[in-house]
């Protein structure tokens, strides 16, 4: 079973990202569960969402404490939460940032993608309030190989509320432009 934890802020689409990822893996014949942790719901507040992917039915209903992969939608969250808490050995952290992965002092396999620039370029939200969740999933597909680019594109097409072509283009661009220090393998 693979466990993925999304960290973002209210309004960025972390919950939708966890659901699109689940839809992509489901389309590949996997068992999936995706769920949000609802704190006090308000725009800008830290939000956590979870996805589990397995080859057999998933019974575990707890939150995710030992993720294989952490997706950070907003570097602000790095200051307020310990996003790598419980991350498995050799785990992967994918961060929305224009910086190089080497600039992050995180004891894990770090990948970065400039999801804000990608989202803005494709007209997804504004620079102040970009919609970056689909870009993060493009990066996720490339870095982890857990789901194919095609599955993420299809799940994006059927799950985003609007701007379907723009979101799909953002997925592709993030897939091609994500930066990682080395080839990564999930477990």
């Amino acid at each position: 079973m693979y466990e993925i934890r999304f960290h973002g802020r209210g309004g960025q689409g972390a919950v939708t990202a966890s659901r699109i990822l689940a839809a992509a893996a489901f389309a590949e014949g996997k068992y999936v569960v995706s769920f949000p942790f609802f704190g006090t719901e308000r725009r800008g507040a830290p939000v956590t969402a979870f996805t589990r992917i397995d080859d057999s039915e998933i019974y575990l209903k707890s939150q995710i404490y030992n993720p294989d992969i952490v997706v950070v939608l907003d570097t602000y969250v790095l200051r307020t939460s310990n996003v790598t808490e419980g991350l498995k050995d050799n785990g992967i952290v994918i961060i929305n940032s224009p910086k190089d992965p080497s600039e992050f002092n995180i004891d894990a396999n770090v990948a970065t993608v400039d999801a804000v620039s990608i989202a803005v370029k494709h007209g997804l939200g504004s620079r102040a309030n970009p919609v970056i969740n689909t870009s993060m999933l493009g990066a996720f597909a490339k870095v982890t190989g857990l789901v194919s680019l095609e599955s993420v594109l299809e799940a994006t097409r059927t799950n985003v509320p609007g701007k379907i072509k723009e979101n799909m283009d953002a997925v592709r661009e993030a897939y091609d432009s994500v930066k990682m220090l080395k080839k990564m393998e999930v477990r």
């Binding site: 689940a22 489901f26 068992y31 999936v32 569960v33 995706s34 769920f35 949000p36 609802f38 209903k61």
Partner: peptide
Amino acid sequence: AFILSHTSEP
């Protein structure tokens, strides 16, 4: 609540 109501699964 949430654990089923807001959780997506097959």
